[in-house]
Design a protein around this nucleic acid. Structure first.
Lengths: 225, 225
DNA sequence: ATGTAAGCGGACGATGCCGTCCACATAGAA
DNA sequence: TTCTATGTGGACGGCATCGTCCGCTTACAT
């Protein structure tokens, strides 16, 4: 599989490059307002280009979605790296979680993209994904070794927490207080001293089999845009 | 606003009543498989009736969705009543939460319906809704008075928790372990003894303004069924 | 200044779903 | 058995979106 969108290379006409930028900006706006299912034509119109241009640059909707939120994805990746280098393991863990949730909260449309892009992403390549998986595990183990994160915490719990937060901000896009509350509750229950009782067994979820493109649907609401 | 679907009354032809049943069963199946956005025609076909019959009985998709999951909604309502009468306030609280989450986990399609129907539902009338709201608050206060539920817990937190759980089971429809884990984490963080640190302010969410039908969209995934 | 390859835009046919309309069927009363 | 109100099915017109095709435009190398 090649890179989803033709990346702005050196051999690209200036106007083409400009349009690519406009398209991505428009996509972010439109996806934020109408969800990632918004008509492609809407994005094109907002960008001030024709549909053909849009399709030439981003052959599929997924490619567009992924490109539009690539920056946020990178921010997530960077946050993970930073978390690993934090001298205080718990603070690293906490910050990662809070940063990702904040991103989901503030960039509307991103949560949907986050969930949608999960299977093959956090950059696109299985290699990057495995790295992410490994780093997450390291982050968890470190925080546990420091006695801050409860011993029965499983790396997949982090994904579970992030996905449920996605769901919340999707259902209540304007209620950042709700999001903050959930984050606070979850973080508290992840602390070692909160481990009063045993937990049920963790999800078998190896980050790799999150929400396959298959099965499709399972939409959140029934109303149309 | 009248009742969404013509209820099976005494003056209904036997075949009509039979068809109504088949439609509801088909709707549950189809919604579970393809999400609540599945084409109406699919439901009709599966039920072995014509589209016209479907539309006559359920003029809008929402009416169908609500009727299809009315039973689950009633189970929720009943669980709330039972929770209030439980001699152990915390156990009542815990059971309510677990029961609703179990329902969301097991009846695929129900989470979406749950979120979608929230604004005007838990029966349909504002009256019933207010009653629900009041009962929830009572449940929370009782559990707090018993010293089991943390004092800074706000009734809206229950909605926040349920909505995030909805999001999780929507993203991972087959992973009940993940759902159970989330429920366990949340319940632990709701306990009074977990209140190590203060929480951010609660959501202004008065159950009434949950996920308005307006705005629309904000779908979870981009792929089509 | 000029030629041309890269880029552009919008019209267009295809597809899929919606919701109605109407000619036909039948349950059940008389 | 007969009659009719109630119920039925599927065809059909309408609409939105998809993604492609092709003739025109323009950046930029020479």
């Amino acid at each position: 599989m090649e890179d989803s969108s033709r990346i702005a290379g050196p051999r690209m006409r200036a106007d083409a490059r400009r349009n690519q930028g406009r398209i991505l900006a428009a996509a972010r706006e439109v996806f934020a307002e109408h969800g990632i299912d918004a008509p492609m034509a809407t994005v094109a119109r907002r960008a001030g280009v024709g549909v053909a241009t849009l399709y030439r640059r981003f052959p599929t909707r997924d490619a567009l979605v992924r490109a539009a939120f690539a920056h946020q994805m990178q921010t997530c990746a960077r946050a993970l790296t930073e978390a690993l280098t934090d001298p205080d393991p718990w603070r690293g863990f906490q910050r990662l979680f809070e940063t990702v949730c904040e991103l989901q909260r503030e960039e509307r449309g991103f949560p949907a993209a986050f969930v949608a892009a999960f299977p093959d992403s956090t950059a696109g390549h299985a290699q990057a994904r495995e790295r992410t998986e490994r780093d997450l595990t390291t982050l968890v183990r470190r925080a546990q070794a420091a006695g801050a994160l409860r011993a029965d915490f499983h790396p997949s719990d982090l994904v579970v927490a992030l996905l449920s937060h996605c769901g919340l901000v999707t259902a209540l896009p304007h209620d950042s207080a709700a999001s903050r509350r959930l984050v606070a509750y979850l973080l508290q229950s992840f602390r070692a001293e909160a481990a009063h009782r045993p937990l049920p067994p963790p999800s078998a979820l190896s980050l790799r089999d999150v929400p396959i493109a298959a099965d499709g649907s399972q939409r959140q609401r029934s109303s149309r845009a």
